[in-house]
Design a binder for these strands. Structure first.
Lengths: 119, 119
DNA sequence: ACTGGCGGTTTCCAGGAGGAAACCATGTCA
DNA sequence: TGACATGGTTTCCTCCTGGAAACCGCCAGT
């Protein structure tokens, strides 16, 4: 019953490693609004490769954060949706993305100051 | 003024990539309570190597999230502390770690179910 | 007949991440 | 004199990540 991400062997560490991932944050952020199809996700998440997207989705599905639904249309439609468990997380990962967007200018300024001081 | 982490070239993407990192989350979580010295951090964050810890700290310092203070003791003491900017972020990254600790059992159960279904 | 979209998997390959361990200066204690 | 601690840097080496591109079946439109 003692879970602590600061202990190397704790399974929490593995989960944290999966969530603390740029792509996972972006995927969960997109799915939070509504279910999205594979290629739609690929188009919306600029710069992600097909392989990485399918890997991330598979891992998120395995962790129970995302569900996969196949429609027998033609061509086959596959829709990814956030699960109730994933929804308990989405606010947090979204806050991370929003922090980055809100504070990017401050961070860039800090970087420039740091780089100037190093010269 | 249009920052969007979903665009590949947006600087937000780089910041997100830095924050969405297992080690950064753990370091910021430790510094949130109080300033900590280098070797103390190394001891508390089980499994991190000296090299990686110093790299993470340097990047966080460059981004203005962590400050470094050197004391002329013997041997030299170096204390890392969270900055006001870092403090605006710490609640979020801490929430991520806490989510992992709180939901690990649900995630592990989902993984087992997924793996059984795949056989 | 051929192109294109969907939703992938697989292969190849280059580059980076990260662990281990050596090395550094300094000083202190035994 | 030699081991130990502090706070690193640097080198070496290996494993993994992740991008590019080919390939897959299926069908619709031109």
């Amino acid at each position: 019953m003692e879970y602590d991400a600061y202990i190397q062997t704790c399974p929490t560490r593995m989960v944290l490693d999966r969530l603390a991932d740029k792509w996972a944050v972006l995927v969960l952020g997109r799915l939070d609004d509504k279910p999205v199809r594979f290629n739609q996700l690929k188009r919306e998440i600029d710069g992600i490769s097909q392989k990485v997207l399918s890997q991330v989705l598979k891992k998120l599905e395995r962790d129970g954060l995302v569900s996969r639904k196949v429609f027998a249309t033609v061509p086959v439609t596959v829709e990814y949706a956030i699960t109730p468990l994933g929804r308990t997380l989405s606010a947090t990962v979204d806050a991370l993305r929003r922090w980055a967007e809100d504070n990017i200018e401050t961070v860039l300024a800090a970087q420039q100051k740091y780089d100037r001081a190093a010269e």
